[in-house]
């Protein structure tokens, strides 16, 4: 079972996001970087499947040189190979260009004799939230894609994927090769060991430079949502606040 997992380097944000002066990006001066929980779960899922069924795992990202940090972290979780599609740090890549760049890399790897049975993505990128890169690549490869899954069972030549809805699960059965986009909760990602992290730093990362073309979609700028600022109403302190809380709940009609 050969699996490719695509991840994206994003800032590790806290409660408040500050923008750069040109309003083009989050100010990351005081922030670390990470990749999204969805993608961390996708990495864990790939490592787990290969531990059970055997095979090869590759983690891929499109990003600046510094994104090797995220590739190394994924390797310390157990991914065997890494590919960096190296770009300049500044501009955002739109989903269409991103999908094309990843597709070109997959086809290059296939031309070198590598085969993939499954491609894993996060359900959506943490920052841009485009919900489409995995689906675009599946379409280009003419592979089936099950999006937003929370459970994946592998059987002979096929996969059974489960999506959660508000009231239960939807089950999809697809033949391999296939693309899956994953949601956090599909597993509990392992925490890499210190020796594992040190070993990952010494592993080789294959690099290439992707091409970007002009697209019809353009980001103009970012902004912080305008909060309709309402002063918080303090209902009291400790247990003594209970009557006021219940009064409020009755006014809202949630306690009758």
């Amino acid at each position: 079972m050969n699996i490719l997992v695509c991840i994206k380097r994003v800032p590790a944000t806290g409660a408040k996001m500050l923008l750069t002066e040109d309003e083009q990006a989050i100010d990351t001066k005081s922030l670390g970087f990470t990749f999204s929980p969805h993608e961390e779960c996708a990495v864990e899922e790939a490592v787990k499947i290969v531990e059970e069924h055997g095979g090869d795992t590759t983690v891929l990202t499109l990003g600046p040189d510094a994104a090797k940090e995220q590739l190394q972290y994924a390797m310390s979780m157990g991914m065997k190979n890494a590919v960096l599609l190296e770009t300049e740090d500044t501009a955002d890549w739109d989903p269409k260009n991103t999908a094309d760049a990843i597709l070109a890399s997959i086809q290059e790897q296939q031309a070198e004799g590598k085969t993939f049975d499954m491609l894993f993505f996060g359900n959506e990128a943490a920052d841009t939230g485009g919900y489409q890169v995995g689906i675009r690549i599946a379409h280009a490869l003419d592979w089936p894609c099950v999006a937003g899954i929370k459970q994946l069972d592998i059987e002979e030549g096929k996969a059974i994927a489960y999506r959660e809805t508000g009231n239960g699960k939807e089950v999809f059965e697809v033949m391999l090769p296939a693309v899956f986009t994953m949601k956090e909760g599909i597993n509990y990602p392992r925490y890499p060991s210190v020796p594992g992290r040190l070993r990952a730093k010494k592993k080789e990362i294959a690099r290439s430079t992707p091409q970007q073309v002009d697209v019809s979609f353009k980001k103009v700028k970012l902004k912080t949502p305008v909060e309709v600022k309402q002063e918080v109403q303090i209902l009291g302190e400790g247990a003594a606040a209970a009557p006021k809380v219940v009064e409020m709940m009755q006014e809202l009609g949630v306690v009758r």
Binding site: S216, K218, K219, P225
Partner: peptide, 16 residues
Amino acid sequence: RLRWGGSLLEESTLAD
């Protein structure tokens, strides 16, 4: 449009 699940907003254009 929403970014970061709505924690940030993005202004953009689409020519299609």
